[in-house]
């Protein structure tokens, strides 16, 4: 049996009026170290499997601050049902609101097929820190098929739109010198905030296989490929420490 489940979070300056997990997506309010709320996605079972349709919706209303992380990596596994699994993340951030979306890695296990879509709608003064890490195969394993799309709109205009496709079901060339060059971990860190409007960042190389780039809008994107998850996280953490983003 494939699973259909949608988890919902709504954050306001006063708290979390909606915190509703479903199926394999359990949500826990965890202690915040600063202002605002922190929610941890607790994967109650291994997911997603082939055929599953999972979704998380988070809405950060005007003036609110929300951090979402996860207790463990998400592992895409082959399912009994034919067809790919779908995982949709829909995020909205209001005026003077901020969202830190910091899940653990997404691991594409051998034989799996996952379509992941992340769509973020930011108000003009909304802030976002978003991390995405994709690990192709568990340790020493060939990857499954993984395609992801990250679409970020700010004040209704496109800010960033990116699709990545890897694995046996992806178009040929994904493992070559233009795309991954044999690397098995790929990640992005996106920072959006009005401070980049006043003072755009300068592009900066972070070693041989990572770069910090200012987008056309008020945002910075760090793009990295690495041999494994550990080294990818190290690059992204160091890059974040090197920015003025609080």
């Amino acid at each position: 049996m494939s699973v259909r489940a949608t988890a919902r979070i709504v954050a306001t300056p006063a708290g979390l009026p909606v915190l509703a997990g479903e199926g394999p997506l359990a949500l826990r309010r965890t202690r915040a170290t600063g202002p605002g709320a922190r929610v941890t996605v607790v994967g109650a079972m291994s997911a997603p499997l082939g055929g599953d349709r999972l979704a998380i919706e988070a809405e950060v209303r005007d003036g609110a601050l929300l951090t979402v992380d996860s207790a463990a990596a998400t592992v895409a596994l082959p399912g009994r049902d034919a067809g790919p699994a779908h995982y949709d993340v829909r995020l909205t951030v209001g005026e003077r609101a901020a969202l830190n979306w910091l899940p653990e890695q997404l691991v594409s296990a051998y034989g799996s097929d996952l379509r992941m879509r992340t769509r973020v709608e930011l108000a003009a003064t909304g802030r976002l820190l978003l991390r995405e890490e994709q690990i192709l195969g568990r340790h020493g394993e060939e990857p499954g098929t993984l395609s992801t799309r990250l679409t970020v709109l700010r004040a209704g205009r496109p800010l960033l739109d990116q699709e990545l496709s890897y694995g046996p079901g992806a178009p040929a060339g994904w493992d070559g010198g233009a795309v991954l060059g044999g690397h098995r971990a790929v990640g992005q860190l996106l920072l959006v905030g009005t401070e980049f409007e006043e003072k755009p960042a300068s592009p900066r190389l972070l070693g041989e296989t990572a770069v910090l780039t200012p987008l056309a809008g008020p945002a910075v994107l760090i793009t990295a490929v690495a041999p494994d998850a550990l080294r990818l996280r190290r690059v992204l953490d160091e890059a974040l420490d090197g920015t003025a983003y609080r």
Partner: peptide, 22 residues
Amino acid sequence: GTGALPAASAPLLDIGAEAHAA
């Protein structure tokens, strides 16, 4: 709308382009 257009991207092309420009 233009959101339906593909956005296929390649990390190493982006990283290499910045290295090359420097």
